[in-house]
Amino acid sequence: MVSSDRWRWERAPVWSAAMSDASAFAVSLSARDLAVARGGRIIVENVSLDLKPGDAIVLKGANGAGKTTLLRALAGLLPPAAGEITLSDEDARVFCGTLNASKAALSVDENLQFWTALYDAPSGAAVSARSALGLDAFAARPAGQLSTGYARRLGLARLLIANRPLWFVDEPIAGLDAGSVKTFEAILNQHREKGGGVIVATHEAIDIPNARMMEISH
């Protein structure tokens, strides 16, 4: 296993370099009186929120309160049952759910390369995301053989590769050790400094400066 300090944020120069010349994001999203149904049943209703460039929102709520459902609707994966979501660019969103979307039979690199092509990212995106998340030592390893924490890092790499303004992340740090949580927090901050917006649904303590808390109840 690689110890966590081997891949601190400061030690990922490739990623930092890639970030500095990236253009700033400027997409806002706003939801008005949103209601979302799952399996024909309304799970969340009367949700209104605004996500402006640089904003972060943390969704809190008990199990079954509808955090994931709301997040999927905001990300454009579920049609709202009522209300509306407006944003200037439909392709500005990327959703990272609790599932890592990686294929167990493909290596870490093959998974990253697939996402690079899928999200039409520049060819260097896979390598910089890999080193930003400390997966360099596992490049050739089948994703199915990664530990829970490393598999989660691979799943989170989608956010970096897609390089879209608005991130919708469900339980991002479940299974991550303290060092990896710090790294992910740094990645979120970097994204917001570029003008990106973030909505995170989580039960865990995650340190996101100036994030708005939103309590979802059923």
Partner: peptide
Amino acid sequence: RPDREDGSLDALVECG
């Protein structure tokens, strides 16, 4: 079904 189970389907849907 595998894509639906491992979350890849979301990525396929939201790609450009």
